[in-house]
């Protein structure tokens, strides 16, 4: 009996193998494979620019904040919720920090504290409304987004650059990546570098991955997203879990907001416009399902990279007209969604 089982296991067909794989791992694999295919495609068709390590690290530099925001969003999406306030909150954080640093002569650590507190406050209120009053997350965070955007204008209407010295120094800090670099036009070796934000983003990715994978709380997020009613019956405090998801997302938005601020170095009401959509798109491309219960932080990381790689490809391909970016991102999103949908339905049938 057992021997026949073994041989049949060895001869597992593709469909069976697909079926044995958990939804999360399956979507993660698809994401990573597609990202590498895309990056290789970019190198082959668009030339050496993409081959330089710095090209890759620039993607990281520009998207450190988005990675952090997407992590928070993935978490909320895994529990079956959504948070569309992250972009607005980011703008509010940038503006508050900028005003504090430049108009009130503040120092950087307090600015970071302000950023974290704003993020946590949003997470706290939204989490309470969603989890304990059972209001639809879409509506709550929509209001959160409106509120944050409106508040940004109320704090300060005009965009301005921050000139606080300590802040500018932190902003310009470059951390060289050992062993990687390229020779520039003058024949000088330039080591590849990343900004402070990238380090923070990578730390966030690692911590969040560990939390979701190796802690009880992390698995509870998945359980709640998989089936709320069942999770309750399994003895999980569903309300608290949902609340925590929003709270952590708020905290990450605080971190991400400051990293964003560090990258742009200015305050403006129009900052981070559409960041929530980019974050949602990244999470989805990374294999998080909006229905909840399925997703992976590593996938989200690759989701952000895929999204920005596509943007880079579009601009390098000479399609500079502004509308092409929007259209290609949309097409990419469409492609991923359709692939996910087809794979999942194929799996169901298999």
């Amino acid at each position: 009996m057992s021997s026949t089982n073994k041989t049949s296991a060895e001869k597992m067909s593709f469909a069976e193998r697909l079926k044995g794989m958990s939804d999360t791992n399956l979507l993660l694999t698809i994401t990573i494979v597609i990202f590498f295919l895309m990056y290789i495609g970019a190198i082959v068709f668009l030339g050496g620019g993409f081959l330089k390590p710095q090209a890759f690290f620039n993607i990281l530099n520009a998207n450190a904040a988005l990675i952090i925001l997407s992590c928070g969003l993935s978490l909320v999406m895994i529990t079956g919720g959504i948070d569309i306030s992250v972009g607005g909150t980011t703008a509010l954080i940038s503006m508050c920090c900028a005003v504090y640093l430049d108009f009130h002569g503040g120092n950087v650590p307090v600015a970071i504290l302000i950023a974290l507190l704003i993020g946590l406050a949003f997470g706290l209120v939204q989490g309470f409304l969603v989890a304990y009053l059972d209001i639809q997350p879409f509506i709550v965070t929509l209001a959160g987004m409106f509120f944050a955007r409106g508040m940004t204008t109320i704090v300060n209407t005009n965009p301005f650059n921050v000139e606080n010295e300590a802040f500018v120094a932190l902003k310009d800090t470059r951390i060289t990546v050992p062993g990687l670099g390229s020779v520039n036009k003058l024949g000088k070796y330039v080591p590849a570098y990343v900004g402070v934000g990238v380090i923070v983003a990578l730390l966030v990715v690692i911590v969040m991955f560990c939390v979701l994978r190796w802690t009880k709380l992390g698995r509870q997020f998945y359980a709640v997203g998989g089936n709320k009613q069942s999770a309750l019956m399994l003895g999980i405090n569903v309300k608290r879990t949902k609340f925590l998801a929003h709270l952590i997302c708020g905290l990450l938005t605080g971190i991400g907001g400051f990293v964003y601020f560090l990258y742009v170095g200015s305050g403006s009401p129009s900052h981070a416009s559409g960041a929530e959509m980019n974050a949602i798109a990244s999470s989805i491309i990374g294999g998080t399902m909006l229905t909840g219960g399925v997703g992976n932080i590593v996938g989200t990381f690759f989701g952000v990279l895929s999204l920005s790689t596509i943007q880079n490809i579009v601009s390098s391909a000479g399609l500079d007209e502004a509308w092409w970016t929007g259209i290609t991102i949309a097409a990419m999103l469409c492609l991923f969604l359709v692939i996910q949908s087809l794979v999942m339905s194929f799996k169901k049938k298999a």
């Binding site: 939804d23 709380l217 998945y222 089936n227």
Partner: peptide, 25 residues
Amino acid sequence: ITLCPNLSVAENMFIGRTSGIGQNW
């Protein structure tokens, strides 16, 4: 069935009833 279909069989058997923070797979 009051279990979570997206989790593994083992997780469904143990989730929500063991103490500690970490998950020893």
